[in-house]
């Protein structure tokens, strides 16, 4: 049976539609980094084990290394470049500002993923989603305290050990948002 191993797809990233001839094997992560020069999204493990490649797909956080670009066609992707501040003079997202103020990073390599994840964590909490440390999983109101932030941010490894400052940054941004 004849089978095409590449396709022309439309990838919508940060509101811009890109038409790409793409090898079916290409992940969203590699498409962003190697084809669209959107290198803010990082490759740390390429297997969904570190979170450095976190982006938002239809507003929800996802590890872009495990998404095939062809399967994401037509969906809205937001990368760190679409969160804020990518252009000179453009305002930072409150989460970005909080990471900057609290020194919630060191080498910076996990940072775009952490920030994309944190933006989504605030939305997930606002939507009432519970976490693995939520005492009563059926509760309608869940306080986004430090244990909740730690658990919800645990899909993003940071080897420099900036977690303490990351938690402070997310708590700060959550407080500013609420």
């Amino acid at each position: 049976m004849e089978r095409a191993t590449a396709a022309t797809i439309t990838l919508t990233v940060n509101g811009v539609a890109h038409s790409l001839d793409i090898d079916h094997r290409t992940t969203l992560l590699d498409a962003l980094r190697e084809r669209l020069d959107l290198t803010g999204t990082k490759k740390g493990c390429d297997h969904g084990q570190c979170g450095a490649c976190t982006v938002l797909v239809e507003g929800r956080r996802a590890d872009s290394c495990l998404l095939l670009a062809v399967a994401v066609a037509g969906k809205a992707v937001t990368t760190i470049e679409g969160i804020g501040g990518a252009a000179a003079g453009e305002a930072l997202h409150p989460v970005q500002q909080a990471f900057l103020d609290h020194d919630g990073y060191q080498c910076g390599y996990c940072t775009p993923g952490q920030i994309c994840s944190a933006v989504a964590v605030l939305d997930e909490h606002a939507a009432g989603w519970p976490s693995a440390v939520t005492g009563d999983v059926g509760a309608e109101e869940i306080v986004l305290d430090e244990p909740e932030i730690r658990e919800r941010m645990s899909g993003n490894l940071c080897r420099c050990g900036a977690y303490v400052s990351i938690v402070a940054a997310v708590a700060d941004a959550a407080g500013a948002q609420s």
Binding site: I80, E81, G85, Q96, F99, T111, I115
Partner: peptide, 9 residues
């Protein structure tokens, strides 16, 4: 370089 790091630049 903080701004560059938090913006992915």
């Amino acid at each position: 370089e903080g701004r560059l790091k938090v913006t992915g630049q």
